[in-house]
Amino acid sequence: MNLHQQPAAAVKICGIQDVEVLKSMINLPVDYVGVVFAKSRRRIEPKQAAELKEVLLAWTTFDRPKLTGGFVNPTMEELEQVMDAAALDVIQLHGQETPAFCEQVKQRFQTEVFKAFSFPKNESGTEAVDTTLKTLDNYVHTIDAILLDTYDPQYVGGSGHTFAWERIPTYAKWARNHGIELFVAGGLKPDNVQQLIQTYAPDGVDVSSGVETDGVKDIAKITAFVERVKQA
């Protein structure tokens, strides 16, 4: 056995809306289950999140996945309402939330905070990278992970498009230097996720539309995705 072997990347299945879909995942080593509270066709209400949390609390096969809620520029009141209903393990922020806001969220709710940074599908260039890195420096000590995603002008994630993956090493190095985890999202699916992991070794991957058929979560695709991540 290679003592220096990387631990398997964490898997986050996002956009879960249905209790039955979540129950069908109970035999899979999923690390995070994501629900969306921002404008999206996958948006759910706090009451639905509470029902999903009940299923997670009864999870026995593997370690229980952490329940993650996705928001875009939420108010504290909105977060309060969701946390009262469902007690999220992770609050994931996809808007223009400031470092001070992230820190306030972390302290107030004692949760992990993930901050998403989105890139246009085809954008590249060192200037854009430098600008983002300067921005990221302000978030050190206020977040637990960064999530790199493809920019979608309408919705929080779930665009189904990959961004320029050659950007990843720069951000991975930044994250490693600051003890922050790096997750990659955007256009991932069972047939490209192993290539991503073997090439760039992120700490975790996040999928939504890539495990859907006709806009509905597909347990066969979820299973294939999870297996390929854990094998990679």
Rank of each mutant, 00 (worst) to 15 (best):
L3M: 04
Q6N: 15
A9Y: 13
A10V: 14
K12D: 04
E20M: 08
N27S: 07
L28N: 02
P29W: 04
V30Y: 02
Y32G: 13
Y32D: 00
V33C: 04
I44G: 04
P46D: 02
Q48P: 00
A49R: 01
A50I: 07
A50M: 08
V55Y: 02
L57H: 10
T61C: 07
F62K: 08
F62W: 14
D63I: 03
P65E: 05
T68P: 11
G69E: 05
P74G: 08
M76H: 08
E80G: 04
E80R: 10
G95W: 07
T98H: 07
F101K: 07
C102Q: 03
C102H: 01
V105S: 10
K106F: 03
Q107L: 14
R108A: 10
R108F: 05
Q110D: 14
Q110M: 10
E112T: 05
E112Q: 10
E112C: 09
V113Y: 04
K115L: 04
K115V: 08
S118G: 05
T126Y: 13
D130V: 11
D130R: 15
T131V: 11
T132H: 07
T132Q: 11
D137H: 14
N138F: 08
D144E: 09
D144R: 06
I146N: 14
T150K: 03
Q154M: 03
G157H: 05
G157A: 10
S159R: 01
E166S: 12
R167A: 10
I168Y: 04
I168C: 11
P169A: 12
W174V: 10
W174S: 10
N177W: 05
H178V: 06
G179C: 14
E181A: 15
G187M: 01
L188M: 01
N192K: 00
Q195I: 05
I197S: 08
Q198L: 14
P202M: 14
V207F: 00
V211P: 00
V211W: 01
D214E: 14
V216T: 06
A220P: 02
A220H: 05
T223L: 05
A224W: 01
F225L: 07
R228P: 00
V229F: 09
V229I: 06
V229L: 09
A232I: 03
